[in-house]
């Protein structure tokens, strides 16, 4: 029997490593998924190093399905320590791939995490311009 969700999805869903809020976040992104109404809030801490902007820390809150939670956590895992440029290049297929797979109807859930990241970066840019 193939379970509905892969082992990796279940693991990240039950024990997310990047759960919570960053009090002194440099950027915050809050996005909703139009397909299902799920909501995700993403917090990033950015460090500048030799003109590179590195995502030093990242945390999330997600109100949503198991896939939304697992992909949120996986997205955080994937971008932590990367430059903003690198982080934005990660697409939903990368997230799904890292999680083994997702049921077809749940593919859209991984889009939430990417949108959240984009929103957090935009917020960071806005704030750092001031």
């Amino acid at each position: 029997m193939k379970p509905y969700y892969s082992k990796q999805v279940i693991e990240h869903f039950l024990h997310p490593k990047n759960l919570g809020k960053l009090k002194d976040a440099d950027g915050v992104g809050k996005v909703g998924n139009p397909a299902c109404g799920d909501v995700m809030e993403l917090f990033i801490k950015v460090e500048k190093k030799n003109s590179k902007e590195i995502i030093k820390d990242i945390k999330f809150y997600t109100l949503g399905c198991a896939a939304a939670i697992a992909t949120s956590d996986m997205a955080c895992e994937l971008v932590k320590g990367k430059t903003i440029q690198e982080a934005l290049e990660i697409n939903y297929q990368d997230i799904v791939g890292e999680l083994g797979d997702l049921p077809p109807i749940k593919i859209h859930c991984s889009v939430l995490a990417r949108e959240g990241l984009k929103a957090a970066v935009e917020d960071y840019r806005k704030k750092s311009k001031k």
């Binding site: 509905y4 969700y5 279940i10 869903f13 039950l14 799920d38 109100l63 949503g64 399905c65 198991a66 939304a68 939670i69």
Partner: peptide, 11 residues
Amino acid sequence: RGVEGEAIVIA
């Protein structure tokens, strides 16, 4: 409140 049914079912 603050929880989605699908996530409860999976857990």
